[in-house]
Design a protein around this nucleic acid. Structure first.
Length: 868
RNA sequence: GGGCGGUUAGCUCAGUGGUAGAGCGGCAGUUUUACACACUGUUGGUCGGGGGUUCGAAUCCCUCACCGCCCACCA
């Protein structure tokens, strides 16, 4: 390619290069490689999922790490896959079934329904995978895994069997979080507390043994009164001590106003409400505990779907729990025992998936007592695993410290079936008999029935880091190098993976964990479908290119901080890619690029030398950024170098060098070629497509840029002439703007040089000032505006435009400002405590600054004198 | 109730003891032969409030306020 299009057009090149990389096998990980390993397992997105900005952030970071690792000489494995996402997927398919065929899963039966889910998965499950490819993710697709793959699923069940054998998995009837919509138990982590506005209902009951004595009870859930089996007070509460052991009459249901005891229990907070608690062991965790302590009967008045059953009495049977609440209040009113209803806000646990209040329910479930909790805590405490940012270590530690057993069984069909088998007794299949059970993966025989429940999705995800790999792969790539994920799944996934890793591999599953921020909209709200504030990343890719999206997003993603998304940032990412594209385009106007260009073999201008030093500094900044997972800083460093140092300053200055042939021109071309090459390499992890397009287009190929080594610093030192020069240019341009000279007006500039080296750089100054002419003078030309700079005093002679009086006023104003600066520094230096206590270099710096200002003042004074 | 994060220019954010910064926006000018997805210049801030440490604080300490998140069985 000898010519580039005027603007970078991503849609013309992205698919091409992605396919090429894949054809060359550049994403493939070779376990037999001698290179050091670098590996990441993808946090598997839900198979039902479509790409969100959160995925874009997360996966772009992983891709950056992987591409950077390849460039730094590692054999890289980025292992992709998807998660079967039990409830989410089952819900999606059930919804379709209802909509399209007006059927429920029960109409189809288990086998047929699962068949449908698999069909759905085959048809739609790959969407997010293709979207990741659009984004440029360099995953080893040949190793794509699914959490229900046969081998993986078997492993999940084996782990169940193993943990059961170790006594860590047990079956028990316990209080669980029940979702009345999904009709399954949930883990504590799947319950989201939400503040709810409701009422605190006060009602009174009479103490049977002391007629005329009433207890007032405050409750938010009057619909559970029918399940009450006691009333509790705190034994230390002086108001009620005499009443413990006596009885009250439960008001509902009307046909069964049972006598229930008053018990004393420490769990009752006598500050709250009336200090009297109704105890419903079947429908409240605390009440259940109280019930156990006092041997209270358990009356379960709810059906699994949240409606009330026959135990609730005829007035309530069949009502939904929220209808029942209203009905219960009405009945209390009718009985004349309702004292008051006061508005009350409290936290109610909601089902994460179905978004309805969960119901505490006594239920027979499988539980896991977590293995290796102490070791898992130590691994992070002792930094065998490092968290970035490290503040999440505390959150992790705290959770492990207070860890509760994990309810792992789900009353769903889609998922890993629990490997527990029960012997079917001929003629008595009601399950009440203590049947013979076996815990094993394969069926013991035809007359054995498998437990109908499946395992929590996360019970399979926690093996993801190691059981997605075969033995050879694991030998090379496990433990993985890094995990990139959101802090919202630190308990769901990260902590559990660490425990599973320690239990089953004896090693930590990853060395470093990077927690991304959460992407919010401009108002700081979470992205959500219902709010419609979540832009489709595919639209953004279509508009700005994958590189623009990646670079724009990463540039505003500070470590561990939530990100307020603004499309303008993506526009800037796109603009940046285009900026660099055009810099390369400019280069091609002056002949073909030399891929081997080495500026060290040329005589270099101060600008070239300085640019190379700035490049070295940029490489250092970028390297530091990678070491500390500071992705926005890397992007920012590259942005600043390319836009300011390279384009705004160097290339503009280089235009003078291209006006003639010679060594100067050759040195500048070599510098540009070298810088472009380095920048392409440095930028490649962030913007893989445009960098490959340019790499090939400029002739750095034919090897892919993916396979080229990471740039090293070359030991260039700053040339102080360059910044002085550019600052002077800035001052001079400022002077022109002050007198409202239009940018396109060419002027006859003059300069009184302060440095000998300037002579050879006058053509550059002339170009940068867009001058008609530029001559050196020995003193101020008459009638000129003057601008003292470090490289000399620059004069703008514009007879008839600059009124000498105006210029004198301007100079006077500037002198005043300079005097103020001198005064400021002088005050500081006059302070003895400062001079004595501050480090010598700081004091010297102040002295130097003071001298600079004094020199400038003298220059201004001289210019004013020259004007008369 | 505990814990964590945040508060710096109109906006998004850098800046962990030494002259308060960047990008965008705004304003003014420019089709200067890489780029109008651009260039040039410029305007914006008692660094949330108060106290302390220090020669010196956006930066360290204390405290308060507000915003956000996480954990926790107050019915």
């Amino acid at each position: 390619m000898s010519e580039l299009a005027k603007a970078y057009e991503p849609h013309l090149v992205e698919d091409k290069w992605y396919a090429w990389w894949q054809d060359l096998g550049l994403f493939r990980a070779d376990p037999s490689s001698q290179k050091p390993a670098y590996s990441i397992v993808i946090p598997p997105p839900n198979v039902t999922g479509v790409l969100t900005l959160g995925h874009v952030l997360n996966n772009t970071i992983q891709d950056i790490l992987c591409r950077h690792a390849r460039q730094t000489g590692h054999e890289v494995l980025w292992l992709p896959g998807t998660d079967h996402a039990g409830i989410a997927t089952q819900t999606v398919v059930e919804r379709r079934l209802r909509k399209e065929e007006k059927k429920t899963r029960h109409d189809l039966g288990r086998e047929e329904f699962l068949q449908r889910v698999w069909e759905w998965k085959e048809k739609h499950g790959g969407i997010i995978i293709n979207q990741l490819k659009k984004l440029g993710c360099s995953c080893d697709w040949g190793r794509e895994r699914f959490t229900m793959d046969e081998a993986y699923a078997r492993k999940v069940q084996e782990v169940f069997v193993d943990l059961h054998a170790k006594g860590l998995i047990y079956r028990g009837k316990r209080m669980v979080n029940w979702c009345p919509v999904s009709l399954t138990a949930l883990s504590d982590e799947e319950v989201i507390p939400k503040p709810q506005k409701g009422y605190l209902y006060h009602f009174k009951v009479e103490v049977i043994e002391k007629p005329g004595t009433f207890l007032e009870i405050a409750t938010t859930r009057p619909e559970t009164i029918m399940g009450d089996t006691a009333v509790a007070v705190n034994p230390k509460d002086p108001r009620y001590t005499g009443l413990i052991g006596l009885h009250v009459r439960r008001p509902l249901p009307l046909e069964n106003q049972a006598e229930i005891p008053i018990v004393g229990d420490e769990a009752v907070d006598f500050e709250f409400g009336t200090g009297v608690l109704k105890v419903t062991p079947a429908h409240d965790r605390v009440d259940y505990e109280i019930g156990l302590r006092h041997n209270l009967p358990v009356i379960d008045i709810l059906n699994p779907d949240g409606t009330l059953n026959e135990l609730a009495g005829e007035d309530f049977q069949g009502l939904d729990r929220f209808e029942a609440r209203i009905e219960a209040v009405d009945k209390l009113k009718e009985l004349g025992v309702l004292v008051k209803e006061e508005p009350h806000e409290n936290n109610v646990g909601f089902s994460e998936r179905a978004d309805v209040p969960i119901e505490p329910r006594l239920s027979e479930q499988w539980f896991l007592k977590y293995p290796k909790t102490a070791e898992a805590r130590d691994a992070v405490r002792n930094h065998l695993i490092r968290f970035f940012p490290d503040r999440w270590e505390k959150v992790y530690d705290h959770w492990l410290e207070n860890i509760q057993d994990w309810c792992i069984s789900r009353q769903l069909w889609w998922g890993h079936r629990i490997p527990v088998w029960t012997k079917v007794e001929a003629g008595s299949s009601n399950g009440t008999a203590t049947a013979d059970t076996r815990v094993q993966v394969d069926s013991p025989g035809d007359d054995w029935e498998q437990d109908p429940d499946v395992l929590d999705t996360w019970f399979s995800s926690w093996l993801w880091a190691h059981d997605t790999m075969d033995e050879a792969t694991r030998a090379k790539f496990y433990p993985t190098s890094a995990l990139v994920t959101g802090p919202d799944i630190i308990f769901f996934w990260v902590a559990r993976m660490i425990m599973a890793g320690l239990e089953y591999t004896g090693e930590v599953p990853f060395r470093e964990v990077y927690f991304t921020g959460i992407i919010r909209d401009k108002q700081g709200r979470k992205m959500s479908k219902s709010l419609g504030n979540s832009p489709d990343p595919l639209d953004l890719i279509a508009k700005y290119g994958a590189d623009g999206l990646r670079f724009g997003l990463l540039r505003i993603a500070p470590q561990g901080q939530d990100i307020k998304f603004d499309e303008q940032q993506i526009v800037e990412g796109r603009n940046f890619c285009n900026k660099f594209w055009n810099a390369c385009r400019f280069r091609l106007l002056h002949g073909p690029v030399d891929p081997q260009a080495d500026p060290a073999r040329h005589e270099l201008s101060p600008f070239a030398q300085n640019l190379l030093a700035r490049l070295d500094a940029t490489i250092r900044r970028v390297d530091e950024g990678y070491a500390a997972y500071r992705f926005s800083e890397i992007a920012q460093a590259l942005y600043e170098f390319v836009w300011s140092d390279f384009c705004d300053q160097f290339i503009e200055a280089a235009k003078a060098d291209f006006q003639s042939e010679g060594a100067r021109r050759e040195g500048t071309l070599a510098t540009i070629d070298c810088v472009i090459r380095r920048v392409l390499q440095l930028l490649h992890p962030y913007a893989p497509f445009v960098t490959e397009e340019l790499w090939q287009g400029l002739g750095f190929g034919p090897t892919s840029i993916m396979q080229t080594p990471w740039p090293q610093t070359a030991g260039w030192s700053d040339d102080p002439r360059a910044p002085q020069f550019f600052e002077a240019v800035s001052h001079a341009r400022n002077l022109r703007a002050t007198y409202n000279v239009p940018s396109n007006k060419r002027l006859a500039w003059r300069i009184e040089p302060a440095a000998g080296w300037l002579q050879s750089e006058l053509p550059v100054l002339s170009v940068l000032l867009h001058a008609e002419s530029l001559e050196t003078v020995a003193s101020a030309p008459p009638g000129s505006a003057a601008c003292p700079t470090a490289i000399g005093t620059i004069y703008l002679p514009l007879a008839g435009v600059v009124d000498p009086a105006a210029e004198i006023r301007r100079l006077a104003a500037e002198m005043k400002k300079v005097e103020a600066e001198i005064e400021k520094v002088a005050r500081k230096l006059a302070s003895e405590s400062f001079v004595q206590n501050a480090p010598a270099d700081v004091v010297a710096e102040h002295r130097q600054r003071q001298q600079d200002w004094i020199n400038r003042l003298a220059e201004l004074e001289r210019a004013r004198t020259a004007l008369g």
